[in-house]
Every structure is written in C-alpha cells, then in structure tokens.
Design a protein around this nucleic acid. Structure first.
Lengths: 300, 300
DNA sequence: CAAAAGCGGTGCATTTTTTGCACCACCCTT
DNA sequence: AAGGGTGGTGCAAAAAATGCACCGCTTTTG
C-alpha cells in the first residue's frame, strides 16, 4: 500500500532512532526521508520527534501518532485478508507470540495441519517470555498470543483458557515410573533437567519448592526446547513439562510422563487470545478457532 | 492529511455513485480520479467498485474497505485532537447526532457554556430520528449520539442514561395548571399541540393512548421545535415535552409544566454515548463529560 | 430507430511532486 | 583540535500525478 508509506517511514525512524539509519534500511536517501518527516510534521502542525545530537526520539505527540499508525497498518492487513477471503482464497500471515512452554509438538502440529489445508497462509511464530507476549500484541508484532502463567492481562482479550498440570518425564525404567502421581520431594531426590527461571513451569516448581522447603538440584539448565529434545538423558534424570506438550508416542521413545500431585505443584493456566479491541485477520482468526477447538477437545 | 487523500476519493466516489460526479465535487478531472481509483484497485488486487452503465457501485470488498476508511479517518481526527490537546490548546470539532427531543434549550446551553471556555472548538449538531442516530455514529458522521427512546443500541456504547418523564405544558390559567400530576384522559379533553409521530414523546403518548383507549386530537402537528417556540398558543391548548427541555423561566412566560402520571405515560429514557469500540476526540470526550455531569446533577 | 447524453477508460504532453547529490551547521567523542 | 556522527537545505534530475482530447460502450431521449 503506497499511500501508507509515510507511516512505514515514521515507524522505521522511531525504531532506528536516527533518520540516517532508517534511511539506510528503507533504501532511500536520508535527505528524502528527512523531508518526508518534515512534511508530516508540517501537516500535523507539531513535531513528532525531538532532535537530539545523536539522532531523534519520539515525543509524546509522536507516541500517540505511532500507536495510531500501528493500529492502522494492522487493520489494513485485516482488511486485505478479509477481502482476499471473499474471493475464496485464504491468504495472509498468522503471527503468533507464545511462551516457550507452548512451542512444543502441539502447536507445531496444529500449524502443519492448518498449512496443509491453506497453503497460501504463512506463519510467524515468536518465542516470548510471559510478560512479553502481551507486549508483542500491543506493538502489533503478533496477532495471536499464547501464554502459560501470564503475568498480567490488561490489554489481553482472552478467547480461551485451560488448566495445564505439570508432568514429570522420565525413562520407563525409572524408580518413579510406575507411580500414578508424584510428590515434589520424590522428584527432588533425582537429578533434574530444568529450564531457565523465566519459564512458567520452572517458576511453578520453584515457588512450590520454596513453600515446601525442598531444594531442586538442576544438572542441566537450558532455555532451549531444541536442546531438551536432542539431549539423550541418563536414566535417572527427570524433566518437566505441561500436559499439552506430551507427545502420544512418548512410550515408543522409552519414556513415560507422570503427573505431579497438584497439592504440591498447582496447575498452571494457558491463555489464548489477542489484543483487546482488535479484529484480527481472517487467517489468524481461523487458526485461532482451530487451535482452541482442538485444545478443548483434547484437554477440556 | 494529504496521504489519506485516496481514502477521501474512495469515500466520495461511493457517495456520488459516479466517478465524474465525484470528480466534480472534489474539484479534479474525472480522468485523474479514475486513475487514482484504478491504482488503488490495482494495489489491492481486487475491484472495489462494480462498473454499471450509469456509474459505479461499491461491491463487498469495497464495503469492507470503506468501513476501514471511515474508521481510519475518524481515528486520525482523534489523534490530531489528542495531539493538539497536548500543547494546551483545545481544538477540534464536536459532532453530535441527537433526537429532536434533545435539541432544546438544555443542549444549546451546554454547547454555549463549553464554547465560552474553549473558543477553538467547533460544533456540528445534527437532528436525527431515533433509529438514525446510531446510523450516524456508524457512518462516522457524528462522534456523540443522544437519543430519546432509542430503537436499538447494537453498536451504541452507552455512557450515561437517565429517565425523562413527559410533562404537559400549558398556560398558567389553564384549568389543569394547578394539578400536581395529570392523567392522560384529562389532557385529551383539550386541543393538543403534537409533534410528528417519529418523535419519541409522540410515540410514548400514542402508545399510551391506544392502551388506554383514548383519542388524542392534534390541532397542530409539526416536526419543528422552532415553530413550537414561536407559536403563540391559545390558552386552552396543551403541548408536551420531556423534563430536560423545560426552561427555568417558564413561569415568566406565563406558562407552567405539569408532569403526566407515569402510570398513564411511562417515562422515556435518554441515552448518551458513542460508537462501540471508538475513542472519540478529546474535545468530544470533554464535552460528553460536561454533558453527563450536568445532566446527572440536574436530573439525577 | 437513430441521435444524444452519460458513463468509464486511455494516450500524450504538461505540471507538480519527490528524490538524489552535494554541502552546511551543529554536537559529541576521541 | 580533529574526526565522525547528526539533522537540515539549495538545486537539478527523475518520477508521479494531472488535464486535455478522445475512444468504445450503454442508456436515455426525441
């Protein structure tokens, strides 16, 4: 859309913090970009950026305008998506910001299923920690937010939520493998594979450990789910995950998943939704629908 | 805002139903306007208007786009208003769509009071019948809606509502003038000054009359409040209005207002609000605030 | 039934706008 | 004091938008 090029320029200048840098990434001359900015400010009657010796920075007026710009651009994306949908073609981009806990096999499977049906739809999946999912929505960096144990939900329009108990994953020959449910102190006797503290599961475990006076001993601490998958574990080591991520074929890999007593470690909540007051593009809305239906069917 | 000129063009073409006519009111050549439209459709990848032998008409895609355009333009107005407000100047336009019942002395007084404080603010006051107020909001023809006895409120965000009983207005020497409250059959014995049936007050009266088996005899029927004000009435004639429109100095004009028994004629409701999901400009928001505060104080 | 009038669309010359280049004044870091 | 960074500006070139004249078409009019 050529007519909202000025918007793109403002956004880029704000992001780069300098006209010259923005001009570079926009592939135009600083002089041209500068003049466009001046002309916008002229039309608006006020400055949008305050000029610093090292560049420019948005002022209050600029922030108001930038919010409008972001709304406007993503609403235009919605319009295009909706128009494309009219002619039967399902196109567009589904942009998801999710906590790392939710980026497991489940989400990947759902994306694949959706793409098989609508090959014209592209996906953008970003990993964001609990507090940052909402931020990504606010900045229109993502249409859909999926959070485990969110920190706040002020601008978050929840469309679906579900409880997700924490499971302990171990070798099928592990001493605890035959139990129906585990107490946390039982787990604490073995070497643990844990994620970073910023993950929701780890947070639940730590808080429970503090409350119960238990010390969790991490032999491996990582923030990478990929590493966890590829790591060939010792038979006595334990790891943790939420229900949604436990694959059906876990036993074929010689592993089992045992739930942890919810009195010890409370169930966490998964929230799925979008930014309050937004109408998201058709493709995103449909994927959201598929996601929640599937979740409700499998874990409701 | 030069960059949303294309939007203005699309809106005007849709309104005019013909490129040539639109070009005339936009003061440009039909050729130029046509090319702009073609370029927009080209960028969008689909036609926005279907071409008829007698002109053009929006298709579905065009309607989706037009809704976006209207949202976008009025949100830009809000941004400008908010930015202007930052620098201490209160500027902008307050656009009101109100039922004729509410266009009496009260609203006029409030507008005057507000303009005395903020001379930079302009007002646009449109009279709309009950069902059309909401329509004006949807089409972004007005920021604020004020309705008496609305027909539906699907897209209406109510910020304030208040009951408004119907009063009977008469000469101070009228036989009924000394009463505390009137029954409808008492009024029906005298010649009545009534508004058109599309007015909410008239509607309330008619429905009550039907229910009670009373016949209302209108000696004068008008849709003009101005006429009512200037009409020098016979001493036995009765007119009706809602509480909010009864001026303080009514007795100085030798008239009195007597409420009608609410068992006969139920109280009507006044709703004040704006379009759902909108953030209205600062000036409008402030005026809305003044309006509701004043109403609550005087009639709450 | 033919002429006239209205419609959207297009080629071309003209006008307006935007861009790129070179350069200025300024501030901070070195 | 020098060097590298910043935003801003005059001027010529490039690009985009516009107006004019005209086409093909359909509906309306006489």
């Amino acid at each position: 859309m050529r007519h909202l090029l000025p918007y793109k320029y403002v956004e880029e200048i704000a992001k780069a913090g300098s006209i010259r840098k923005a001009a570079e990434t926009l592939a135009i001359t600083p002089s041209a970009l500068n003049r466009r900015l001046l002309s916008i400010e002229d039309e608006l009657g006020v400055q949008i950026f305050e000029r610093l010796p090292v560049g420019v920075r948005l002022n209050t007026a600029g922030e108001i305008l930038l919010e409008h710009i972001r709304n406007q651009m993503s609403d235009m994306a919605r319009v295009q998506s909706q128009i494309a949908d009219l002619s039967g073609q399902r196109r567009g981009n589904v942009s998801i910001a999710a906590s790392p806990e939710l980026l497991g096999s489940f989400l990947a499977g759902e994306v694949r299923k959706y793409q098989a049906e609508f090959p014209g739809v592209t996906f953008k999946v970003q990993q964001k920690f609990r507090g940052d999912v909402e931020k990504a929505l606010i900045e229109h960096d993502a249409d859909i937010g999926i959070v485990y144990e969110p920190m706040k939900l002020a601008d978050f329009q929840t469309l679906f939520n579900i409880v997700q108990p924490v499971y302990c994953i171990m070798d099928k020959n592990h001493p605890l493998a035959k139990k129906k449910a585990l107490r946390l102190y039982e787990c604490a006797e073995f070497p643990l594979i844990l994620t970073e503290k910023s993950w929701g599961v780890r947070n639940l475990l730590e808080q429970s450990a503090i409350r119960l006076g238990i010390n969790l001993r991490a032999v491996i601490q990582t923030d990478s789910r990929g590493f966890l998958i590829n790591y060939e574990r010792e038979t006595d080591q334990l790891s943790f995950d939420i229900q949604v991520n436990i694959p059906d074929n876990l036993d074929k890999r010689g592993m089992v998943a045992v739930p942890i007593n919810t009195l010890d470690v409370p169930e966490g909540f998964v929230f799925i939704g979008h930014l309050k007051g937004r109408t998201i593009p058709v493709a995103s809305a449909r994927f959201l629908e598929q996601l929640t239906t599937e979740m409700a069917g499998r874990f409701g």
